[in-house]
Amino acid sequence: MPKPPLESLRFFEAAARRLSVKLAAEELHVTPGAVSQQLRKLEDCLGQPLFERHARGLTLNTAGRDYLAACQRALAEIDRATAHLIAARRVILLSCTPSFGAQWLIPRLQDFLRAHPRIDVHVSTGNRVVDLATENIHFAVRHGLGDYPGLSVSKLLDDELVPVCAPTLPARLDALSGERLLHDEHRGDWRLWSRAAGLNTLDCEQGVVCVDSNAAIEAALAGRGYALARRSLLQIELAAGRLRQLPAPPLPSALAYYLIHRPDTVRDPEMGIFKQWLLEQAAATQNKSPPSGGLET
Rank of each mutant, 00 (worst) to 15 (best):
A140E: 08
A140C: 04
A140L: 07
A140P: 03
A140K: 01
A140W: 01
V141A: 08
V141H: 06
V141G: 07
V141T: 10
V141C: 12
R142E: 15
R142G: 00
H143D: 11
H143T: 03
H143C: 11
H143L: 13
H143I: 06
H143N: 12
G144I: 00
G144P: 01
G144E: 00
G144M: 01
L145W: 08
L145S: 14
L145N: 14
L145A: 15
L145V: 12
G146C: 05
G146T: 01
G146A: 05
G146F: 02
D147Y: 10
D147M: 08
D147W: 08
Y148T: 03
P149T: 04
P149Q: 04
P149F: 04
G150L: 11
G150H: 09
L151S: 07
L151G: 07
L151Q: 13
S152P: 00
S152N: 05
S152E: 05
S152H: 06
S152W: 06
V153Q: 03
V153K: 00
V153C: 11
V153D: 00
V153R: 07
V153I: 10
V153P: 00
S154C: 15
S154R: 05
S154F: 08
S154N: 10
S154D: 14
K155P: 13
L156M: 09
L156P: 03
L157N: 02
L157M: 04
D158S: 15
D158H: 14
D158Q: 12
D159L: 01
D159P: 00
D159S: 14
D159H: 12
D159Y: 08
E160F: 14
E160I: 09
E160S: 14
E160D: 15
E160P: 15
E160G: 06
L161Q: 13
L161N: 11
L161T: 08
L161H: 12
L161A: 12
V162Q: 06
V162P: 03
P163V: 15
P163A: 15
P163R: 10
P163I: 12
V164Y: 07
V164K: 07
V164E: 10
V164I: 14
V164M: 11
C165Q: 02
C165F: 03
C165G: 02
C165K: 01
C165T: 05
A166M: 03
A166V: 03
P167G: 01
P167V: 00
P167Q: 01
T168P: 01
T168V: 09
T168K: 09
T168S: 15
T168G: 15
T168R: 10
L169Q: 05
L169W: 04
L169A: 07
L169D: 04
P170K: 09
P170M: 09
P170I: 09
A171E: 08
A171L: 08
A171G: 06
A171Q: 07
R172G: 07
R172L: 14
R172M: 09
R172W: 08
R172D: 14
L173V: 14
L173W: 12
